[in-house]
Design a protein around this nucleic acid. Structure first.
Length: 421
RNA sequence: GUGGGUGUAGCUCAGCUUGGUUAGAGCGCCUGGUUGUGGCCCAGGAGGUCGUGGGUUCAAGUCCCAUCACUCACCCCA
């Protein structure tokens, strides 16, 4: 019979890896708590309309990457491809703004996009992120960036680059787009195919093209940063000054454009050159218009999203251990049938005391069991054989020191506590 | 959707150019060297439809075609 396989672009997180995932999720929760973000969990699927309306019809995500299907009642559902829209939906639906003027939430969640997989890009992948809803203050933007960077610092990864930009708001962006199109139009035929396609859909993306000819043509193009309206200008400057106060290094990239429609004003990206072509480990920005787009009350908001798989890739490339080496506290060996019930009792007692403990279930020789204990990086081995039974004692081997001591049967747990380090 | 690369032991890979004994290595695993004692060392052992299907040939892991899978990159994104 044919062996069943996991579907393309998905991953089994095996025991060796899941230890790292758990440790990483732990540091994420810890940092989020310090910054006073609370967890918000949303369903894995939503009405398709949430994303088509929230993210934008013309974006790649909505136009060609969503896992969309009909349920039995012919409702159009979509496996969530990103978290911002669901968070905003939940914020409005549950009227979180009624409890507090300001809502700060974080999430750790699986997301789904049907793309061609490559290094750092899976069809089911995971992001953590934070969103501050209800504030238009540039301080919220700075805090969001600081939060992401704090998580990275805590994990131990280094060498990350922060790029920031402002994409303005409709007030400055709409006239700017026209100005940009006018500038490009005379030379449009010299631009690459992709850029020609972008001309009507999303002219600002043309500035982000990496093709040499396009980069050259873009040299003299007007920059949105030079054409911000006074309010956006003020916001952007306040953000930069707060980042400086926080001693956060950043690079201004006037061509940084994010692919999602809902961004206004602040956008940013954090990259690592330890990654391959997909070098962004974090992306985010402000989305003051999304709330209304989804049919709710106006609510300015800012957030970031960070790829967990990519973070782990960076850690691996840099030799950063996300989790300490796994150790088993106690391995118990019963030498004959008389010892078995005693071992079983001790195993239970040791576990009850909070230590990790295990025994052999394969009927292996003592030598093989010792090897097994060693393989599992065990701290203590407890041995009971006829000698021990006669003396109503157990042998406790301290594996790191190689020493072995004989102790009374009932003192075992206390003795383990004493030698545990 | 487009282009490149790779499929040989549980894992990482050699062998393919120049077809020809029983297809190899390292790591891992198992057994023994110790009547009940791990790591290091030594000795031995198990484990392979050479991705799949077809073709060429006296002979195919090796050459040709097809197909599938994986992978990297483009587009775009975390």
């Amino acid at each position: 019979m044919k062996q069943l396989k996991r579907i393309k672009g998905t991953q089994d997180i095996l025991p060796d890896a899941s230890v790292k995932w758990n440790a990483l999720e732990g540091t994420i929760r810890q940092v989020m708590q310090c910054y006073n973000f609370s967890e918000l969990r949303t369903p894995v699927f939503e009405q398709t309309e949430l994303f088509s309306r929230g993210i934008g019809q013309l974006t790649d995500i909505v136009s060609k990457e969503m896992y969309t299907f009909e349920d039995r009642s012919r409702k159009r559902l979509t496996l969530k491809p990103e978290m911002t829209a669901p968070i905003m939906r939940a914020y409005q639906e549950n009227k979180l703004y009624a409890n507090a003027q300001l809502t700060k939430v974080f999430y750790i969640a699986p997301l789904f996009r049907q793309e061609r997989p490559q290094a750092g890009r899976l069809r089911q992948f995971h992001q953590f992120g934070a969103e501050t809803l209800g504030s238009a203050d540039p301080g919220a933007d700075a805090e969001i960036i600081d939060t992401a960077l704090s998580v990275y610092r805590k994990t131990g990864i280094t060498g990350l680059k922060l790029k920031i930009n402002s994409v303005g708001d409709p007030l400055c962006r709409i006239p700017y787009k026209k100005q940009l199109q006018e500038h490009i139009r005379p030379n449009l035929e010299h631009y690459c195919e992709d850029c020609q396609r972008r001309f009507d859909e999303n002219p600002m993306r043309i500035l982000d093209c990496k093709k040499e000819t396009c980069v050259a043509l873009n040299q003299k193009a007007p920059k949105l940063l030079d054409n911000l309206c006074p309010d956006c200008e003020t916001h952007y400057h306040a953000l930069k000054s707060q980042l400086k106060t926080l001693h956060i290094e950043f690079e201004e990239d006037p061509y940084l454009v994010r692919g999602l429609d809902y961004y206004t004003r602040t956008v940013f990206e954090i990259t690592s050159d330890a990654l391959g072509a997909q070098n962004a480990i974090c992306g985010g920005g402000r989305y003051d218009l999304l709330a209304e787009e989804l049919g709710g009350l106006p609510a300015p908001a800012v957030g970031f999203a960070s790829g967990i798989e990519r973070l782990i890739m960076v850690a691996e490339a840099q030799g950063v251990e996300l989790a300490p080496l796994k150790r088993l506290d106690v391995f118990l060996i019963g030498m004959d049938t008389e010892a078995k019930p005693l071992i079983l009792r001790l195993l239970k007692d040791i576990r009850k005391a909070g230590f990790s403990a295990d025994q052999d279930y394969l009927g292996r020789s003592m030598k093989a069991q010792m090897r097994e204990a060693n393989r599992q990086n065990t701290r203590f081995v407890v041995i009971i054989g006829t000698d021990e039974i006669k003396k109503n004692s157990v042998s406790l081997k301290l594996m790191d020191k190689g020493e072995q001591i004989s102790i009374p049967f009932d003192n075992l747990v206390a003795e383990i506590k004493k030698h545990y380090s």
